[in-house]
Amino acid sequence: MSQRLRSKWDDLGERLLSGAVLVGLGSVCVWIGGTVFHLLVAAVCGMMVWELVSMLDTRRERSPLILGVAAAAAMLVASEVPASFALPLVLAPSMLGLGQMERGGVTYASFAALILLAGYGMIVLRDVYGAQWLLWLILVVVTTDVAGYFAGRSIGGKLLWPRVSPKKTWAGAIAGWVAAGGVGVAYAMLTPAHAGLMGLSIAASMASQIGDIAESAVKRRAGVKDSSNLIPGHGGLFDRFDGMLGASVFILIAGQITGFPPGIGPALP
């Protein structure tokens, strides 16, 4: 095997092992649901906000911890109260950060809101529609990422946005859409959802890719390769869950338009 070929895949083993651990832990918490799942989402949101602040504002030493804890606490409380009271809590850490950040405040506020809205969206999916539909969203994002990784490394070709993300290609993006569409078809065959789930799956795949690219833009602005080094082979939680951010927020919005799951239930509450 040539040196060039080895360099394309030299992180594969580490990525697979770390990914398997994450999937295993996440799957158990999703299956159990309730407070266990709420705690997991709150912890992940808090750590992602910590990573975000650490990237954007290196001049403040205490801000990452303060805002990370605030985000986790807000998410945990929001998961236990009615939606009308949860929404102000979800946005509160963004407002708090504007007073804590010495620089990057607007970027922080926007992405912190995205992180917590995405976390809340996943809680709504699990609590209202059950584990199978949260699993659908996770499968869409994971298959998009996996198919994009292998197609991008194997086929290569024109880059999607070279200035921001030098490794993401159009071949990988399209492969992700196809894989996500396959998840939608499989779910439509196994559940009462109609064929429109395929289109919704492809759109969620696109939203996950937008979330991925947006996170890459933040890292490029901050001058870092990874959001942190918490996960071997993947970087930080922000690196790993950036696609879930876009997809989860998308479903919160799209569910109001199409009804979710399509052909089964009403729009999201």
Score class of each variant (00 low, 15 high):
Gln3Gly: 11
Leu5Met: 14
Trp9His: 06
Leu12His: 01
Leu12Thr: 09
Arg15Val: 10
Leu16Pro: 15
Val21Gly: 05
Val23Glu: 01
Ile32Trp: 15
Leu40Glu: 03
Met47Arg: 07
Met47Gly: 02
Val53Cys: 06
Thr58Gly: 10
Arg59Gln: 13
Ala72Tyr: 04
Met75Ala: 15
Val77Glu: 07
Ser79Cys: 08
Ala86Glu: 02
Pro88Cys: 10
Leu89Ile: 05
Val90Gln: 03
Leu98Asp: 10
Gly99Gln: 13
Val106Met: 13
Tyr108Gln: 12
Ala112Glu: 08
Ala112Lys: 01
Leu114Asp: 08
Leu114Arg: 09
Leu117Ala: 15
Met122Asn: 14
Leu125Trp: 00
Arg126Met: 14
Gly130Val: 12
Leu135Ile: 15
Trp136Gln: 06
Val141Gln: 05
Thr144Arg: 02
Gly148Ser: 02
Tyr149Val: 07
Tyr149Lys: 08
Phe150Gln: 02
Ile155Gln: 04
Trp161Gln: 12
Val164Gln: 11
Ser165Ile: 02
Ala175Gln: 06
Ala179Ser: 06
Ala186Trp: 14
Pro192His: 07
Ala193Lys: 01
Gly199Ile: 05
Ile202Met: 14
Ala203Asn: 11
Met206Trp: 02
Ala207Glu: 07
Gln209Met: 10
Ile210Met: 09
Ala214Tyr: 12
Glu215Phe: 03
Lys219Trp: 00
Ala222Val: 01
Ala222Glu: 06
Ile231Thr: 01
His234Glu: 05
Gly236Ile: 08
Arg240Gly: 13
Gly243Arg: 05
Phe250Gln: 04
Phe260Gln: 07
Gly263Tyr: 11
Leu268Thr: 14
